[in-house]
Simulated assay, not measured.
Amino acid sequence: MSAPSPAIIVDGLGVRFRRNRRGRRSIKSLFASASRRMPKGEFWALRDVSFTVQPGEAIGVVGRNGQGKSTLLKLVAGVLLADEGDVEVRAGVAPLIEITGGFVGDLTVRENVRLTAGLHGMSRAEVARRYDGIIAFAELQDFQDTPYKHLSNGMKVRLAFAVVSQLDEPILLVDEVLAVGDKAFRAKCYARIDELLADGRTLFFVSHSEKDLRRFCTRGLYIREHRLVLDGPIDEVIDAYNEDNPV
């Protein structure tokens, strides 16, 4: 029997940002970029990153703040475009990357659920069928007609996870946002992630919590100085990170 086709292929991936985001790049800077010189004021957020992810794998991404972990998730999600290299995602993704991602402040909770689920390909009938469960999971029964912008950060996290975890996409992308929720809700989220993994979903998980990484993930990616320096079993990756960053 042949091996399954990878769910994600990342090859020589690189993305750069401006330190000062005001204004567009000048013609001069574009010529400098074409000649492989870094335009003044720009830096590589990620550089020369390559790996593959098989269907059903649970991958944990570790590294210090500002090293490119969340940027990598956004590249996989298609939120950002790479400046060099390629990222190929061969299945749909359910992204839980930013608290406000995909939600509209002036729309109500009810309207946002319908809009966001619909944008991710859920039919109106499917949204209607799952709506009560989403609201119950988010514990927002009394806030369905409240504008999203008036919710607390904790409420926004609950709503985002409730919607995303109901999507049928094979790949789940989760950033550190779950840390915002309270202990009881995190336990409920983790139980839902366990269910999704048992169902064969692929997990791409950015977290600073060793406990969570060891619980969910079998493999890790260590990002240091904006490059992938280690790809291996999650325990080895966490140990390497801790060795580089003693408390």
Rank of each mutant, 00 (worst) to 15 (best):
F103R: 08
V113H: 09
R215L: 06
T202F: 12
S2I: 04
L30V: 02
D106M: 12
D231W: 12
L13Q: 06
A77H: 11
V62F: 14
N20C: 03
L167Q: 05
T116M: 12
L73C: 10
T100Y: 06
K211I: 10
I238T: 06
G232A: 15
G66K: 11
E210M: 11
T202Q: 07
D142P: 02
D244R: 04
L96F: 09
K183T: 09
Q67P: 00
A240I: 05
L140A: 15
L173W: 04
R215S: 01
Y222N: 08
K74Y: 11
G220M: 12
F161M: 07
D145W: 11
V109Y: 07
V113N: 02
N65H: 12
Q67V: 15
V49T: 05
V79Y: 09
S35V: 09
A191R: 12
F137L: 10
S165M: 14
R90E: 00
S50C: 03
E176I: 05
R37S: 09
N245D: 01
H226W: 02
E126D: 15
L167N: 03
L80D: 10
P6Q: 05
G68W: 13
E139S: 13
L230K: 14
F103E: 07
R47P: 00
H226P: 00
C217S: 06
L75I: 14
Q166L: 02
N153A: 13
V10A: 09
V79W: 07
H208E: 03
A125K: 11
F51G: 05
V109N: 06
T146C: 13
S165L: 15
I193T: 02
A45K: 02
G105A: 11
D48V: 07
E176Q: 03
N242W: 01
R215I: 01
R37F: 10
A82F: 07
G220I: 14
G14M: 08
E225H: 13
F143W: 12
I97P: 01
F205S: 02
S5A: 15
L46D: 04
V15C: 04
R47C: 00
A3W: 12
G101I: 01
S209P: 04
V87S: 07
I193G: 00
K28P: 00
F185C: 01
I99L: 15
F205Q: 04
R19T: 01
L167P: 02
R192H: 11
R110P: 00
A34Q: 09
G105M: 13
T100H: 10
P6N: 07
D239I: 02
A32I: 06
R215M: 02
T218Q: 14
F43T: 00
A94M: 10
L75H: 09
L30W: 14
R90K: 14
E84Q: 15
F31C: 01
A179E: 03
V15M: 05
R64D: 11
E111N: 09
E98G: 14
L140N: 14
I223E: 04
Q67D: 03
A58R: 13
A198N: 05
I238D: 01
M155Y: 11
G102N: 10
